[in-house]
Structure formats: C-alpha cells, structure tokens
Design a protein around this nucleic acid. Structure first.
Lengths: 202, 202
DNA sequence: AGCTCGTACATACCGGCGGTATGGTGAAGC
DNA sequence: GCTTCACCATACCGCCGGTATGTACGAGCT
C-alpha cells in the first residue's frame, strides 16, 4: 500500500519527516475528517510508513494534536500582529475580530480546531490547549476590557470569553458552510459587533 | 459476543426493538462517544444482534441520526412549553434561555446534539436537522424580535440566530465541562443576558 | 579499523469493528 | 397448505489502528 521505494524520505533528516507527517495530517484531516483519514494514507502522502509515524508520535490522537497545535500556532501568530495590546481595547477587539473572521474562512482551522478538536481530543484537553492559543487571545482581550473598567458589573471573565468564543466559532462555521462566504462573513461581523456592543457601559 | 438467547426481544414487536436500539444508542453514544461505542455493544444492550440493527437502520450513522432526533424531540417538547409564542418576545427569550441552560446540564444533549452532531453527521446535515428542532426555536425567537421591531437596523436573522446559538452551545459545553455545573450555569446565564441586551433599541 | 549502541525508520502481523451476505422463523394472506 | 414477506440471527469479510520485530546507519569509543 504505502511503500517508500523511490527516494526514501529518511535521507532528508528526521525533523523534516516529522514536519511532513504533520503537514500531511493537516491536509487529510481537513479534507476527510479525523475518522475517515487513515494512517496509511497520511504516511503514504508523506512518503513514509507507519513505522515513522509511531516513532515520532504516540498514535493517531497524538498526531492530530500535533496538527492541531501547528494550525493554532499559525493563526495566533497572525492574530497577534493586529493585536499588539497597546491601543484601545475596543479597537483591538474589533481588529482582532476582523482578522479572526478571515481565519475562519480557512478550512484547517474550521475543521481541526473548531469542529473536531473538542471531539477528538476530548473537551478538557481541547480546553487546556486552546487556552494557550486562539482562545487565549479572546480571553486576554476580554480580560483587558474588564480590568480597564469598560464592562460594568461583576462577571466571570472566563465564562464570558467562552460564550463569546462560541459565537465566534459558530460564526466561523456559518461562514464555512455558506455558499457565499464573503457575504456571510460581513453579516457575521455585523451580528458579532451588535452583540459585543451590549457589553459597553451605560 | 452478543447472543439473544434468553427471551428474544422479537416477541415484543418491532417498534419496541427499534426504540430499544435508539435508547441503547443514546446511552452508549453519550457515555463513550460515537467512535468508541461499538455496534455489538449497542445491540447487546438492547438484547438483539446486528441483524436487527441493519434491518431498522441503514448503518451506524443512521442510528446516530435517530438518536440525535430522539434527543432533540425531547428537548424541543420541553422548550416549547415555556415558549408559547404569545407573550412578550423578550420575556419568552429569557424563559427559553433558562430552560435551555437546564437542558445543557444533561449529558445526551451536550454530547450527541451539540458536540458530536456536526462531526458525525457532517455540518450541512447537522444544520438542516437542527433547523427543525432546537435551533429552529432560537431562530423563530430571534425572528419575532426582528419582525416586531425590537431590534434596530437591518440584519440577517439567520446569521444572528446562528451566532447566538453558538454562544448558547458554547455555554452548554462550558457548563458540562465545569466542576461546579450549577454555579457555572448561573454565570453563563448572566453572560448571555448581557450579550442579548445589546440587541435592544436605544 | 572494528565494535557497540542508539536513532530512525520499514515490514509483518494481530485484533476489533463496521458492514454484508445469507439463513431461519413465524405470522399473514390467498 | 403453500407462498410471501417482515423480522431478525449467524457467519464472514475487509479495513484500519496498533504492536512487535527487524534493519540501515551514523556517532562515539577503543
């Protein structure tokens, strides 16, 4: 099925093999989902065998987690650029929102992070990992709003951030499932802005 | 593995068998998730074999869909009771919110409908099914707010409902994953109310 | 130079599970 | 009493995740 006869990958060094596996995993998990993407297919695309996979990773779940983190890191890097954390919190939230909606148009984030993440990794693991990446940004942003007194009353920052993040994710899914993603993206942005406005004082 | 020696279920009529399969599926899908719940286990619990399953359903996916619908119907029935659609839209939305948060404390809805639904059935199928059940209620509720002029400006009702539903679902997941569900349930309710308040006029 | 040893894979194989093909059984209808 | 069909059991297949084992190869020591 998946021989590596012609020019084996091993000659190109170990890190490259690991990276190729992660990249192949991202592609196939995105295309067919976790369950329908077989390891033979993933390793075959990376021009290795299961031996290489189980040398670098603990199993299919661990490979998914590596793919998950790779996608998240890419997203967080881009989002951090437009949210330096020095300007007006509301302005940055809005800038981050725009950038996030663009990210939501990309299939890997939609499928691996938002949709299958909590199911494959388990909710708790997904929660813990997300804390360090995209959700962490949302949470930090909300935290700054609260700590600078822009949101009246006392409220659990974590829970509020969770609910907002859910709205974002659902908006992401709506965009991804739409037959006119660009138009829907604008509509989602409007809806989210209206909802967030309710948090302001007075 | 899963014999049905002692008092075969068949004598109790076909509909009972089908119902037993659905109930068993709900239980095991909730406990272990879709992937880790085997058909032998599900049929064994219902005191039948795979022959019965594949007579009543097209396969594992179809069985999951039946379980999905069974859970949704139960939830919608209860939610409809507190939302007769005759009182003030904002009042009903709030009443529906309370009822929904209680539903979110129940594992079957959390796991089968909110979490694994979109993954197992595919997002499009999940979207179409949800239209007829829980999400349909949210959508109708938002629709009434807009058509009675309680929300200013023009906005896509469907998208807005989607985003709100995402917030609800995320709140559901947060509650389910919390170590103190009752307390978290209150916090989620507060956060959602604050967000929804932003939709009001003036 | 030769030997050892750990890394970095490939190969072969197993068990479980979803799905299918086939057989059996009892009630209903002609 | 014969057929027919719904209803289900049994047996079996193929795929896939996981494991066990073998092997090429460079580093380091002697």
């Amino acid at each position: 099925m998946s021989r590596a006869t012609e020019r084996p990958r091993r000659v190109e060094y170990s890190e490259s093999t690991r990276a190729a596996l992660v990249e192949s995993a991202i592609t196939l998990f995105t295309e067919r989902g976790y369950a329908r993407a077989s390891l033979d297919e993933i390793t075959g695309r990376a021009r290795v065998t299961k031996g290489a996979l189980y040398h670098h990773f603990g199993g299919k779940r661990a490979l998914f987690e590596a793919a998950f983190e790779a996608v998240e890191i890419g997203v967080v890097t881009r989002l951090s650029d437009v949210m330096p954390g020095e300007n007006d919190p509301w302005e940055e939230l809005r800038a981050g929102l725009d950038a996030f909606l663009r990210v939501c148009l990309e299939a890997p984030f939609q499928r691996i992070v938002a949709q299958e993440g909590p199911v494959v990794l388990g909710y708790q693991r997904w929660y813990d990992l997300g804390e360090r990446y995209t959700f962490g940004l949302v949470r930090a942003s909300v935290q700054r709003l609260v700590s600078t007194g822009r949101i009246e009353g006392t409220m659990s920052v974590d829970v509020l951030a969770r609910v907002i993040f859910g709205g974002l994710a659902s908006g992401a899914a709506t965009i991804a499932g739409s037959d006119d993603p660009n138009r829907t993206s604008v509509e989602v942005g409007e809806a989210l802005e209206r909802l967030l406005r309710g948090l302001r004082d007075g």
